[in-house]
Simulated assay, not measured.
Amino acid sequence: MQAVILSAGIGSRLLPLTREIPKCLVEVGGRSILDHQLEALHAAGVARAVIVGGYRYRQIGAHLSRAAPPLPVRLLFNPFWSVASSIGSVWMARDLLGDPFVLMNGDTVFAADLIAAAVEAPGDGVGLLVEPLRAAVTDDMLVTVANRQVCAVAKDLPLDVATHRSLGVIVSHSGDAYAQALEQVIARAEGLHAFHHAVIAELATYAPVRAIVAGEGAWQEIDQPEDIAAWTGQQR
């Protein structure tokens, strides 16, 4: 199992924190988001990680050289980070997606047991980590789940059909179904501007996609400055 971490975006909603550093190096609880993620992945038994960087990506490389990550890490550069959505970063790692992988956004902090449960969840093929929808937030990626399968994924999914929200973590234990769906989505006229969740939405129209329901482990998307304090509160 290897990890793919999407860390190319500028993180404009975290300004001024991201004026001089990439979003994944913003500190949460005294450590960078990236350090939190690599530690959680290592604790979950993931063998290695690939980080797809873009905005100020050289700073990511310098940080990794200093930080001595707990697992082998490789940095990929996405030169299209400023003109494409997150799907462009997934495309840069497409050659890795035929092997077992766990893919995550580079702006979310997870408790190690949450990632371990996702990686170890039974079942073949592709899975999406979700949690039951209690109160929708404007920027949530909403999901419809039925019979433990993902049926639809979109930010504008009607609330009367949305049952869960995505945590942005995709797991694949075998096969190239995800890579094939990625190619189908990105090849469309506006494919470069799609969120990478569009790949899951595409795949779910013709193949099973497991809904991996998150347990009690803490997680926090670091999207705005106040989210940093929210994670610190969860850890007390």
Rank of each mutant, 00 (worst) to 15 (best):
D35E: 15
Y57W: 15
L34T: 00
G61I: 03
R31I: 02
G53C: 11
A49L: 02
G29L: 04
R66D: 13
A44W: 08
R66S: 15
P72R: 08
V90A: 02
V90S: 07
L41W: 00
G30L: 00
R58M: 11
D35W: 09
L97M: 09
V46I: 01
S82I: 01
F101K: 04
G98C: 10
G53A: 13
V46H: 09
I87C: 07
G54D: 03
A43I: 00
M92T: 12
S82M: 13
A67D: 04
S82K: 15
D99Q: 15
H36P: 04
V50A: 12
R94K: 14
I87K: 03
H63E: 11
N78W: 06
H63V: 06
F101R: 06
V46L: 02
E39K: 08
R66W: 12
G88W: 01
Q59H: 14
V90C: 02
Y55A: 12
L96E: 14
V50R: 12
G45W: 01
A40D: 01
R74F: 01
S82F: 13
G29C: 04
R74D: 13
H42D: 08
I87S: 10
R48D: 08
G106Y: 02
A40K: 10
A44M: 01
D107T: 05
P79M: 12
Q37P: 04
S32M: 00
V73G: 08
A93Q: 05
G98Q: 12
E27W: 00
S65Y: 07
L25F: 00
L76M: 13
D95R: 08
A43K: 02
H36V: 04
G45M: 08
V83R: 11
F80L: 14
V102Y: 02
D35T: 11
W81P: 09
L64E: 14
G61C: 13
I87H: 01
S86T: 10
N78M: 10
L38S: 06
G53R: 06
L41E: 04
K23D: 00
G88D: 08
Y57S: 15
A68T: 05
L97A: 06
L64S: 14
V28H: 01
R56N: 10
R94T: 06
R66H: 15
G54V: 00
S86F: 11
R94P: 12
F101P: 12
R48Y: 01
P69D: 08
G53L: 05
I33Q: 01
R94W: 03
L75C: 11
S65F: 14
L25R: 04
D107G: 07
S85T: 07
I51W: 06
S65V: 13
G54H: 10
V52S: 01
M92W: 07
V46A: 05
L97C: 03
C24E: 10
L96K: 11
L64A: 12
G30M: 01
P70S: 04
R48A: 14
A84L: 14
P79H: 02
L41M: 09
A47Q: 06
D107E: 06
A44L: 02
H63K: 06
V73M: 14
V83Y: 03
G53Y: 07
R66E: 15
P70A: 02
R58H: 14
H63Q: 12
V90P: 05
I60S: 13
G54S: 09
H36Y: 08
V28W: 04
G106E: 00
N78V: 14
M104A: 00
P72C: 03
I51T: 00
P72N: 04
F77S: 06
K23L: 15
V52H: 05
